[in-house]
Amino acid sequence: MNAWPLLGIALVVLGFALRMSPVLVVVGAGLATALLAGFSPTETLVLFGESFVKHRYLALVLLFLPALAVLERQGLREHVRDFIRKHRALSAGRLLLLYLGLRQVLAALGLTSLGGQAQSVRPLLAPMAEAAAQPATEAERQRILALCAATDNVGLFFGEDIFIAFGAVLLMQGFYAEHGLMLEPLQIALWGLPTALCAFLIHGLRVARLERLA
């Protein structure tokens, strides 16, 4: 067993801890790990290139930014702010709680794409929460925006696993099948429910507490 490539992990941890440019840390660690594992420079380049081309879909969310730019030039954020100010009952805490629940339920039904950091957090949720909470300081404002992004992630992660056709469930089923254990997707997906409920309670409690702060 060649343990040298493990140094790559150490490099990543060190780089992130020293707050170096994440782009350089990741590529540097990739190069170091490849060399320590004994790959030739050509092999390394081929591995980099193949993986990059295969994972291009991760950047497709950028395609939404031109539409967002038009809407923001035309006052989408201002409209969202005015809308929230007219509906005083929708406090920041209630808004985030509602969003969390909706995101979890929709993701559990397989509708994971009904939301996302570029699709719904930046144009809708963040300006709504900001207008509802009316933060007094810039630090407070940034904390609320970060909590919006966090709420989208938590809602997505702890909803999607209940959907039986979701990749993670099929991955688990496939893994067991490879090792001779036959399970129905539902036998796995249903066990995601207790954790999903805990996630709603824990994160929900945290966002609901925003009311008292605001």
């Binding site: 067993m1 060649n2 343990a3 490539p5 493990l6 790559g8 992990i9 990543v12 440019s21 994440p22 782009v23 990741v26 590529v27 660690a29 990739g30 790990t33 490849a34 320590l36 594992a37 790959f39 390394t44 591995l47 980099f48 193949e50 993986s51 990059f52 295969k54 994972h55 291009r56 991760l58 950047a59 969310v61 950028l62």
Partner: peptide
């Protein structure tokens, strides 16, 4: 830079798995 990062991380993941980092840690 942030948009590029997920692709680079996926790439690092491929390097890690080809170098056997995962199995070494589990071992």
């Amino acid at each position: 830079w942030a948009a590029l990062l997920p692709l680079l991380l996926a790439m690092l993941g491929s390097v890690f798995s080809k170098a056997g980092v995962g199995t070494t840690v589990a071992q």
